[in-house]
Design a protein around this nucleic acid. Sequence first.
DNA 1: GCATGTCAAGTTGTG
DNA 2: CACAACTTGACATGC
Length: 304
Amino acid sequence: MLRFGLCCLFKNEDIAFRTTTVKNLSTLSRDRQLLKLSDICLHNARNLQVALETVQRLGIGAFRIMSPLFPRMTHPEAGYSLADLPDGDSIQSTLEACRIFALNLQIRLSFHPDQFVVLSSPHPAVVANSIQELTYQALLAEAVGADIINIHAGGVYGDKHSALQRFGEVYDVLPAAVRSRLTLENDDVSYTPEDLLPLCEQRAIPLVYDVHHHRCNPDRLTIEEATERAAVTWKAVGREQQCHISSPKSGWESGTPKPHADYIDIGDVPDCWRGRKMTVDVEAKAKELAVVRLMADMRGNQNS
DNA sequence: GCATGTCAAGTTGTG
DNA sequence: CACAACTTGACATGC
């Protein structure tokens, strides 16, 4: 019943995504910039298709798409839209092919914007940039049929309550394409499931429960309670629950359990997750090898 | 060729 | 008080 997901990259498969920097682009004329960006975006869209085919072949049920699939798209100077690119039409139709493939083979797609997206920030410019970035990811999500754009609550600024209140106010004015996909995840330093659940329940925002973060940054909730209360936030919007799993690189007893290990120790998978209908994104350095091994371990463990 | 340093953005915690 | 960690690799540069 559990569906396991791969995050962004492959270890052994020959699938790579290209990128570029603003610094590099700034040495080129605008025409040259758009030519280069067009090459990269087409390459990445085609590789996304290969990635989905590979994920399918390996029996993996979900895939997280790397944020800079179209690099620098929202940058104030270097930014662009697909319509600006010479291969814009091919890129668009490749994304459509990805959407159909994922839909037919039931591969669940998601996005996870990085740490610069902060809706709780007291700085209006930070929030404005964040909304722009989310809007870009929603455009991509719409094109490929991804139902999740997952973010953290952001900074605390000395007062969690007012930070979450700011988050809620910004959430209410997000474009519908963003709001319908946005999910919140507990993080490993600031916001626990207990912190986020009231906001999630009040505004019908699904909670992505990261059990590794919860173990690093615990609250009064047990893993069972957090899993179940998170499940309710997904049921409320009629969608399949998603959780995250990872194992600590240096063991739980070390001073720094936060860095991710190459593989998942099956002992780190909560017992109460077994048999549930949900997606579990595997955050492990060995990437698809870790997902495949975990799926095999789960099957073996079930029989014993 | 291969090693190395750099890359848009925010926030927190460490050294 | 400066800087690394989040996660991680691709790319340009210089030997």
